[in-house]
Write a protein that binds this DNA or RNA. Structure first.
Lengths: 345, 345
DNA sequence: CTGAAAGCGCTTACAG
DNA sequence: CTGAAAGCGCTTACAG
């Protein structure tokens, strides 16, 4: 900070030119053993580290990538970020991290900032991958990016996701098999999550096929990752038309829904079954365990970063959405539908 | 990526010098309305964004700070990172993110990388704040940093934490008040977490004061944030000398311990009480809810970043540890000690 | 109010 | 094997 040591000081101490210092440090050309030794001595004596910023300006490569996700505090994002970071480090890349806090309108501004930082590429989860000014901006700037959790309809974008529709269908299929007929879909922010919408769609399809009516929908407000006040949520749940099962668009929401249900005397799964989507690990530790669709979150992060790395080196990569395998995770939070008794709770 | 637009292109289109372009963009000097207009036209037509990297090289300021934490997937870190990022953005700073994955020996290397990236400062949680080569390196480089969750004994380091000893004492005091006499401390990695050690110390102190013997200690291996296999953990729990209460060094561990206890037929809190430390929000949603010591994690992140920001601008800040207020969070996971029956489970 | 020039810390042809 | 020089994209005295 105070007196950053530059390549000139190293050269001075080693008694050679800065070009030579650069060469021995990067091993980019032959150097005599003596000079090499002197340079190495100077480097360690001065605790010299070449400035990435000077280097970047010259090479036009920053070896930095940007991540933008809605939130860090949802384990789903946290764990894929961990995957991205791991692979980034393996390729000696650094990660610039940002969160939109679910404000889709911040995406563009954030992307601008990241672009100004000269990131070589981005991994991002946007509100709506098919209608995003942030992505359009990236396309225009020709900066490579890989979407995570989004499933864009456009075939020219790179993305890593699970099949949200299929996952939701599978889960709702399980619910139906358990005898549930009145299933409600509890949604976090359709507008800010195209995933939520796809899961809803999967739910509708499964019910359609079973000859059941469209699911009732409960849209829930959030503050960050925390759904609204438990009692507000409880009141809303009470307002539903006595569903026997609640399919929540994500696990965090499902946990809140279970707590809220409990608070109004609804036993889970005795009175109502509750399922989520994501498969966060805590879901397996609690009682009842949370039925869900597990996504390989960390692997999704590593896969996305591997693709991005390839893209950054202009390696040829087939565009499109990579669908990783999801898995139904059974759990004690769902059970056979209670016997019909004309009108629920 | 492909044809990044530079200040020269803008100047060319606007028919002025690059100096003038710089001036209107930064509003750093008077400019005539006409020129300003032409420059602005060129900027938006070309979608020009000044390169932060060029700018940084000249100004010697990157407006970037680094974060290093053991893991992203522990909600405690995730949420403080969110706080750091929020404040960083408010000060137009960007955040470079890294995780050690609990490998203390990676700290130094990570710090080197961050230094090479010319971060202006760092927020970090290290394994041992009083014995850290990474911190020594930062001191030598005179790069400001603020510790988070660590409580260094040295008075010259900046840190934001809760009082881990006091928190642990408080919690264990509650346990003792409930009649518990055989309390075991379940520890995550003492070697990689000075917090864990302090919490242990608080536990010992509280038991000492009550005239109880030192707590039995169970050290648990981790893989990332996941404690070892549930059945391994269960076996280890079984090996304990029939404690009536388990104080776990963090909430994630407590959840795993509860699950493992259940798996061997120990009811929580009927047969054994379990408490954690951190106060993660999920702890309040589950049944039984998790007794814990709540830390204001997000606020700790924002506070740390505010201090760092001040430090980066060479504002005078009192060194030392800021202790934020922790709070005992009652929970259904702890209850009165079962009546003595000569030898536990 | 504006421009030419220097320089931030590097890397890399180009000579030798 | 080594050095002098140019240049990456900016900002900022210094002149005018």
């Amino acid at each position: 900070m105070s007196e950053p040591v530059s390549i000139h000081m190293v050269a001075a101490r080693a008694g050679c030119s800065i070009a030579t210092v650069s060469r021995v440090i990067n091993g980019t050309a032959q150097t005599s053993a003596e000079v090499r030794e002197r340079v190495e001595e100077a480097v360690s004596a001065l605790a010299y580290r070449p400035s990435e910023i000077g280097r970047s300006l010259k090479t036009r490569k920053t070896r930095t990538i940007g991540i933008v996700v809605p939130s860090f505090t949802n384990p789903v994002f946290a764990s894929s970020i961990a995957g991205v970071e791991e692979v980034a480090r393996a390729h000696s890349r650094t990660v610039l991290l940002t969160a939109t806090e679910y404000h889709g309108e911040r995406e563009e501004e954030i992307v601008e900032t990241l672009l100004a930082k000269q990131v070589e590429g981005l991994v991002l989860t946007v509100a709506d991958a098919d209608n995003s000014r942030a992505l359009d901006r990236l396309d225009a700037a020709k900066v490579p990016y890989v979407l995570l959790y989004n499933q864009p309809a456009r075939a020219d974008r790179y993305a890593v996701s699970v099949d949200n529709i299929a996952g939701a269908r599978e889960l709702v299929g399980q619910l139906i098999a358990l005898g549930h007929k009145r299933i409600a879909f509890v949604a976090g922010r359709f507008r800010t999550s195209d995933r939520s919408l796809l899961r809803y769609q999967g739910c509708v399809e499964a019910m359609d096929e079973a000859g059941l009516p469209k699911p009732e929908v409960l849209e829930v407000d959030y503050a960050g990752d925390q759904p609204e006040e438990p009692d507000v949520l409880a009141t809303k749940l009470r307002g539903l038309n006595a569903p026997t099962a609640l399919f929540c668009s994500n696990d965090l929401l499902a946990l809140a829904v279970i707590a809220a249900s409990r608070s109004i005397g609804m036993k889970v799964p005795g009175d109502v079954s509750v399922a989520g989507f994501d498969g966060i690990s805590i879901g397996t530790m609690i009682e009842p365990s949370l039925a869900s669709i597990a996504q390989p979150t960390r692997a999704m992060g590593t896969e996305a970063m591997e693709i991005l790395h390839a893209l950054c080196q202009a390696a040829p990569v087939e565009p499109g959405v990579r669908l990783l395998q999801h898995q139904f995770r059974p759990g004690g939070s769902i059970a056979a539908a209670p016997v019909e008794s004309k009108g629920g709770t």
